[in-house]
Every structure is written in C-alpha cells, then in structure tokens.
Write a protein that binds this DNA or RNA. Structure first.
Lengths: 341, 341
DNA sequence: ATTAATTATGCAATCGATTGATAGCACTTG
DNA sequence: CAAGTGCTATCAATCGATTGCATAATTAAT
C-alpha cells in the first residue's frame, strides 16, 4: 500500500504552490499553458488521483446523482438505468441507485438516504401507491433539482420525462377497434399513477371516437403481476358477454393473460385479441407474438440524466422545461390480428 | 436554501466542544449517555445531517462499493443488483454501478473510474472476453478488496461467488440423457469464462458417465444472443445426423432456439429436447415451457455484497474464503420431457 | 522613464468531521 | 491526605482541494 499522492506532493516536487497545481489540474485560465503541461505530466508520472472528498467538501457538490426506481429487475427499468449510466458516466457523474420495491415507505427512506448523501440531483420514478410529495419537499427547499421519469408526479418545480400515455392508450385501443373488437377489456394498474390514468383516458377516447360505449366493468385495476394476468384471463372467460379484445398495460402481465386464455380454450387473437405495453423481449417469444407499445427505455434514461446534468452545469434550467415527451409507437404482431381481416 | 447545520453549530448551542458532539453522534463509549441523548436530540431538532465528505476525507474511506457488470438489462443481472442494493443499503453503503457492455476496453475504463472514485471495495462480473487481470492490479496493490461473482477470475487474493457450474452442466446433460437423448448439442459462450468452461466440463462428465462419446462438432461457441439461438436451431436442423437434445447455457438464447426449431417443423421435445440456463421468466412463457437451471440471482448479489461489507468491517477476512458456492438446481418443465417416457 | 494594464503565481483561510493526547474532576483507598 | 483510578470532555492538528485576494512579473502605452 503506497502512499497517496496529493497536490502538495506535486507542488513540492515542482517548487510551485498547491494553489497553482490545483488550478492547473482544473484547467483554470489564469495558469500559463506551459506550467499546465508541466503539472499535468508530473501528476501522471507520480500517479496522482484527485481526492474527491476534499474536493467535494470544499466545493459543496458531490458529482453524484441519486436514482430511485420501483424495481431494478424489469427489462424496462434496467434499460432505462443503462441509459442513465451511460450519460452520467460520460459526464463523470456517479449514480447511486436504490429501489422502493413499490412501497411508499421504502421510497421515503430512500429519499432520506439520498438527501443525506447530498446527491446533486435526483431522478425518480415513483412507487405504485405513492400519493404524497412530502418526502421530496426537502430537495425543493434546498434547491436540489428533482426530475421524474415514466411514473411522474406533476409539480411546478420539477421536469417530467414521459411518453404520451394518452396517445399510446388511444393507439392500442384504436388498433383493437380497427381489428373489429367491440368489447375491449382494459387491465391496468393504480390510477393514481399518471401512466395508468393516461392510458385509460386514451382508451376511453378511442372508444368514444368510434362510437363505442365505455363500460366500467371492463376496466380491471390490478397490480399488473403475472398472477394478475392469469386472473384477468379467467375473469374474461367467465364473463356472460365475452369480450373480444384486451389491452393490458404491461407485457409480462399480458403474456400471462394470453397464455391462460389459450389454456382455457379461448383462441387468440380470433376470440380475444391481446395488446400489451412496453415491448419487453418476452412479447416476441410468446405465441402468438404480442402486439405492444414500444417504449424507448434507454432513451428515456439518457434524456433524464442528460437534462439533469445540463441543469447542474447551468446549461439549461430545469424549471423552464416542465415536461419532455418521448415518442412511442404501436408494434403490431400476431396477438391482435384477427384472421377475418 | 437554509444554511447547513454542522457539529459546530450543535456544539455552540449546547456549550460543548465539537469533538464531544462528533463522538456522541458516533456513539463513542467515552461520552456520558446523558450527554449523548442531549446531543442526539439537539441534532435532530436542528435538522443536522452528517457531511459525508468531511467524514470520508478524515477517515479515508468512502462507504461506497463499486460494481462492474457486463450488462444491467438482463433479468439475471438486475436481480443480482437488486440483492446487492438491499444489503448495501442496510449497511449504509452506497453502490456505484457501471456496465462494461461486454467489452474489455470499457471494463478497463470502468475499473479506472472506480479506482479514482476510491471505492472501498469492488464487485465484478467480468465481460465476455476479458482475459487479463491487469486492470485490477491497482486494487490489489492498494489493498482494496475485490470480489468476483458469477463470471469470475480466479485469483488468490480474491473471493469468488459462484454456483457449481460443473454440477449444473452435469445435471442438465444427465437429465437429457435420462430422457433418452444420445446426440446432445451444447450451445455455449466464450470458454475463457469459467461459467461456460465449467458447464462444458459438466456436460462432458455426464456423457462419459453414461458411455456416450463426446463429439466436438456438437459444441457451438456463440455469443448467446437471440440470433445465436436462431442460428443454432438452423444448424441443428441441417445436420446430417440430427441431434435429439440441446443444452443452451442461456435461457433467452434457448427460447429463440426452441421457437426456431418449431418453425422449422422440428418437434420439441420429441424430436429435440431443450434445456436452458438461468430460469429467466421467459422460460415459463414459451411453449413448451423451458427446462432450465435455477440460479439464485438475488442471493448471489446479497452474498457478494455482504461478504465484501463484512470484510470491510473487519468481521471476516476475504483472503481466507476463496470461493463461495451457491446452490443451483434443475427445474424440469416440458421442453425436455419426451412423451415416450 | 513612468504608469497602467495584463498575466501568472502564491498566501492563507476554509470546507466539516475525526482523533490522539491531555486535562479536569469525583471518588476510592491505603 | 496524597496518590491512584475512572470517567468525561476538550484541545488542536489533520485529511486534501479550492478560491478570494494580494503580489510579483511582464508587457504595453504614454
């Protein structure tokens, strides 16, 4: 274990002051470029590495971004995180990632931890049943930028990164209607969450526009788990007036629903057409393969991280941009293509 | 933006010295418990939060663990990370996560970044074609503990967390043999990686034990991508002497292989039985559902993080334990159950 | 030649918490 | 009563980088 090199060591060696060394390493304009070259070379030669803590302590910033997500282990979320990691890494920011496991309580705890670790900014996708903003107030009060993505909370001081969920819901439902569906079940999650509420709105708009009635009993609020998909299939099959289409706001849930339907002897898509959401790889594996909404996960992560970093570097004020909407699109596969058509 | 409270503020308020406050907050034995109570209460009341940087600077540790993984967005990896995050969080360690995207070059860069951020320890699952240890030497030299998981590099100073891949490979192959398979293809990855080399060894052991010849032409080295699965299926179907079983060391790849086989008119499992690896959710969705090796991802993450943290806290010396082997098991589903049996 | 302007470097305080050495005090005990 | 023993609490130095202000050196301008 060799001794750690500091700017003082470099300064002594070159008979310069630590201040000059510090400035040179930070490419400060007041330092002569020859001196800079000299210092940089010596730093490399001696194996110097910045002590981030001393630097952070002095500067009062951490170069760290906090991320709170419901779960790490979904394809969508890990793609988002991959996107964030890429951007953050390039801008030499560190990411501290924590998961709320869909519980508000854990989310509050995580927010507190993030606050105490003094992240420079926070990226959040809220838990299933979060309905208060209280645990984020501390950030606002301290002026720490807060940015929501995917599952967002609308707040005048925070930017949101989302897709147009109303449109996505509308597209999905319209597609089913165009395939001839007239009784379309909608399996979704907690309507407190923008994503689910908006998709429902889109679904309703599509119905209205095509002169179909909105039947509340066809909307199933679930936790979108695999079991929920199975359960939904059973309920659909047992309905007196059987539906002819279903729009599930999650691919994995949709796939389980689809499989169960098949097991129950319901033909997909002819008896019931199925549309999912997210374009999870699983949707290409099931038979028939699943029509779904493609959702730009990596992009969302990148945009979220980049916006935050731009704000932190003073390039862009997060307060001005209040919402960034990414493009999403319907991917038609076989689970929704009625053969009569 | 209110002012940040420091231990000096608390000290002044209580007419004590900052040293006492610091010790009280760290539950130092030399402080009277009444004083401690008083200080803790005042700290809470004044809204004090530790300045980690000052603390880290002084203590020379960061309370941060670095993690380098090939990719974030696989079910297995995100489960592992979820496990790590849980343990780290509880022990109040932060996690800095970065991905090598399967490239040695990026892995080296990541290692350097981790080194410069002075992580207290490092958890690594190496990239597809990493074959040198050089970029980790710096850690060893500085005495920073390094722990490999899943895709490991054997090194006398590092602990590895793995499953018994030889046994897993053996189990998979034996199962196929017991189902009556005699010509078993093995689709695997880069044999530099312990996981793939070991599974191959297990596969060979099973063959030998059952008096079957080892035919090198039946081993396909691929990148285990989805395309590789499709490709493997095509090659198998085109073989003059058609194989009757296949063991693919990755579920997603196996699933693609399975689907392609079906498309090519090969019956699964009767013509060709298929076994995968990882127990990815996708294996339960495909038809027939996929026999696979269950692999304790979350547990692996937890054990890895916990071992490292124990070592950091001096509870356990990582040098003594050189290898931790977790339990894995074969999960039999329909893709491998020949109907004749 | 003198002053002003410009450029380059150094001084020294500062960020906030930690910790080895040390002192004050109450109490015991021979 | 002097010396010894615990407790508690304080002092002051330290971790390493940053930065406002001062100063020195050089050049340009008058």
């Amino acid at each position: 274990m060799e001794k750690e090199i500091t700017i003082y060591d470099i300064a002594k060696r070159l008979k310069l002051s630590p201040a000059t060394v510090s400035r040179a390493l930070n490419d400060h304009p007041a330092i002569n470029s020859d001196t800079k070259t000299l210092i940089t070379a010596m730093a490399r030669q001696m194996g110097y590495r910045t002590n981030t803590f001393a630097s952070n302590l002095r500067r009062q910033r951490t170069n760290t971004i906090g991320v709170i997500v419901p779960r790490l282990n979904s394809n969508f979320m890990s793609t988002v995180l991959a996107g964030m990691e890429k951007v953050a890494n390039e801008a030499s920011y560190n990411l501290i990632i924590s998961q709320s496991l869909e519980s508000v309580k854990k989310e509050i705890a995580n927010a507190k931890t993030m606050f105490n670790s003094r992240v420079d900014g926070l990226l959040v996708s809220v838990a299933y049943d979060t309905d208060k903003f209280d645990h984020f107030e501390a950030f606002i009060k301290k002026g720490i930028p807060l940015l929501f993505f995917d599952r967002v909370i609308e707040h005048k001081q925070c930017t949101s990164i989302v897709i147009d969920n109303v449109k996505a819901g509308y597209d999905a439902a319209t597609h089913l209607i165009e395939q001839g569906c007239r009784r379309i079940v909608h399996v979704t999650g907690n309507l407190k969450r923008n994503v689910y509420a908006d998709r429902l709105t889109g679904y309703q708009q599509a119905l209205r526009q095509h002169g179909l009635p909105f039947d509340e009993s066809l909307v199933m609020i679930t936790d979108l788990s695999q079991e929920a998909g199975t359960e939904a299939a059973k309920r659909m099959q047992a309905m007196p007036e059987r539906p002819d289409g279903v729009f599930v706001t999650n691919d994995f849930c949709a796939v389980c629903c689809l499989i169960t339907l098949k097991k129950l002897g319901v033909s997909v898509p002819d008896d019931i057409a199925v549309v999912g959401f997210n374009d999870d790889p699983v949707s290409q594996v099931v038979e028939p393969d699943l029509t779904t909404i493609h959702y730009p996960g990596a992009k969302m992560g990148e945009v979220a991280a980049q916006s935050l970093i731009n704000h932190l570097n003073g390039l862009l004020d997060i307060q001005t941009t209040n919402k960034i909407i990414l493009h999403s699109e319907l991917v038609v596969r076989h689970s929704s293509l009625k053969s009569g058509k």
